[in-house]
Design a protein around this nucleic acid. Sequence first.
DNA 1: CAGGTC
DNA 2: GCTGG
Length: 320
Amino acid sequence: MRQVTTHNSRIAWRRFDCSKSPLHLEATLRTGQSFRWCRDANGVWWGTIESVGVALWQPDGEPYGDLYWQTFPEPDLWEVVEDYLQLRTDLESLYCRWSFAEPRLAEVFRAFAGLRVLRQPPEECLFAFLCATTNTVTKIERSVRYLAERYGARICTGLDKPATLFAFPSVSALSAADERDLRAGLWGYRAPFVIKTAQKLLQKPQGWLRALRDVPYAEAHEALLEFPGVGPKVADCVCLFALDKWEAVPVDRHIYRLGVRLFLPHFEGRSLTPRLYKAVAEAFRERFGPMAGWAQQTLFYAEAGLYRRPDKESSRQRRF
DNA sequence: CAGGTC
DNA sequence: GCTGG
């Protein structure tokens, strides 16, 4: 654990070696699973995990290189970082299994090695994906950021750079939010979903949502469907990104297109109905096993083309 | 046209 | 069918 100094801020960096199990930080934080991470001019990623502020930095973005990290205001909360990034999950054995099951995709898994599914705070994840329906990643990011800065508590970093970060708002703060205010904050028709879901969540016992981590996938998925604005797709996102349901496969239009093309060609051309949603998700689980959701996340990144800079050309050419 | 839901 | 790139 040596000290490293960046240009315009002094951070007492801690170091973690990713040579044995990779972490592709940019792909992980920019895959459309978490929406509030920002990269500054020095290449440092800033975000929050519950009430903890976090700085992450990967020199040259090398997935098998070193990860530098620190927490704020309380320093050295490694377990918070490790848990969130799921750094104990052995990806190499997964890539081996997936590539054996689906050789056509081996190259893709290798190309984005180190892309991890996060283990997010369940409440932030649920509310973020309430806003993800028929929306763009860029706009979701702005919307969730708006929620945090408007209704969330400040986290003091003690630095001049990001002097403060914002914790995601409490459920009670969201339940009392003004609908017109939310509509203006880019949430549009989703605004009442946020307020009603927050109010419904307040009726539950303390820690109810998080406790879904300890029940089977089907049960957790079913429980989430009772909230307004939550359908099968959003429920799968929360299951996968926050509730440890790694067999959950969110099927959006990108995953649907890829799944039909590769696994269910006889469905080519048909629209995404609940029945075909289930069929594609099952096809993923049959091939990739109990961690099918992780395979899905890499393929989503590739299929949705999130990795290429927002350049106008480079038409959608499929290499797989 | 965008990581769907009511 | 809410909104913006």
